[in-house]
Amino acid sequence: MLKSPATHSSTAPVTSDKAKSKAERSESGFWLNAKDKYYAWIFLGPSLLILGVFIFYPMFRTLYLSLFLTNTVGKPTVFVGLSNYINLLTSADYLSSLGVTMVYVLAVTVITIALGLILANYASKQLAGIGIFRTLFSATMGVSVSVAAIFWLFIFNPSTGFLALVSNWLHLPQINWLTDPGWAMLAVIITTVWMNLGFTFLILLGAMQSVPTTLYEAASIEGATPRYQLFHITIPMISPTLFFVSIITLIEGFKSFGLIDLMTKGGPTNATNMLVYRIYKDAFYSGNYAQASAESLILTVIIAIFTLIQFKVLEKRVNY
C-alpha cells in the first residue's frame, strides 16, 4: 500500500531550513513587498484555515478533553488533571496494547526493510528484462488496506483458506491464524509487510541505483565479491535512505488501523489491540472520550518523537 503522505501524515520531505525564500535571497520583487502581506493572507489563508480547524484546534481540544471526565457525547464534565494518563499508564490492559504495538511495529519494520533490501538487491542487477521484475516487485504499492485484507483473509481462512489447504495436503497441523492469540499477530504482521513491500522496494531501489557505478567497478577490480559489495558499499551508501524508510515504516506502523479492523478487530483477546484501534474503540464504542483523548495524546507524543528524530537526522545529512 502506498503510504499516504498527502493526508496529514508524518512522511516528511527533507526541508533544508537553511534555504531562504527567494524573496529573501534576491531582493527581487521588492516593489511588491509592501503589498506582500495582503497576498500572504490570500495565498496562505485557505491552508491555514484547514490546518487550524482540523489539525491545531483538535490537538488542543484533545489535550483539554484528556484532562477531564467526559459524558457520553464527549462533553467535558469534571476536571481530573492527569488522572486519565495515570490510569492508562498503570493499566495492564493499556500497557499490553503499547507492548503489542511495539512488537508489531518493530517486527514490521525489520522484516519489511530486510525483504525490501533483498528485492532491491536482485532488481538492481544488470539482467535482460529486469524492468519487468522491478515493476512486478513494486506492485503491492497499488494495494489498499481492504484489498490486502481480503486477499489475506482468504489465505488465512481456517476452513477454506489457502494455507489451510496447503497444510492439509502436507498433513501439517491446522493453524487458526486469526483466532489463535499466538498466531493472529503474525498474520497481521505478514499482511502489513506485504502491503509495505512495494513502497519500500521502490525507494531502496532508487537509492541503490544512485550509488555511483565506479564504486562497484573499483571494488570488483580489487576482487570484492557481490556479497562483500552489498554489505560494504551498497548498504553504507544507502544508509540515509534506509533510515528514512525505517522511520516512515515505524510511524505508519504506530498509526495502523485498517488492517486490524478488517482482520482481527483487535482480537483475539486483545492480542492485536493496537493504539489507534484502541482509541477508536474507547471513544466510539465505549463513549469514553476522555480516556481516548489521553491515548491520542500519548500516540501523538510517540509519533512526534520519531518525526523529530527524522527531521534532525535528515537535516544533518542534507546540510553536511
Binding site: 496529514h8 501524515s9 508524518s10 481540544r61 471513544a283 512526534a304
Partner: peptide, 20 residues
C-alpha cells in the same frame, strides 16, 4: 507551524474532528 503539523497524526485527532 506547518512543519509542526507533520508531527501530529490525524489518527490521534479523530475525536474533536468527528465532533467538528
Amino acid at each position: 507551524l506547518f512543519l509542526a503539523t507533520m508531527m501530529l497524526p490525524f489518527e490521534a485527532e479523530i475525536i474533536p474532528n468527528f465532533m467538528t
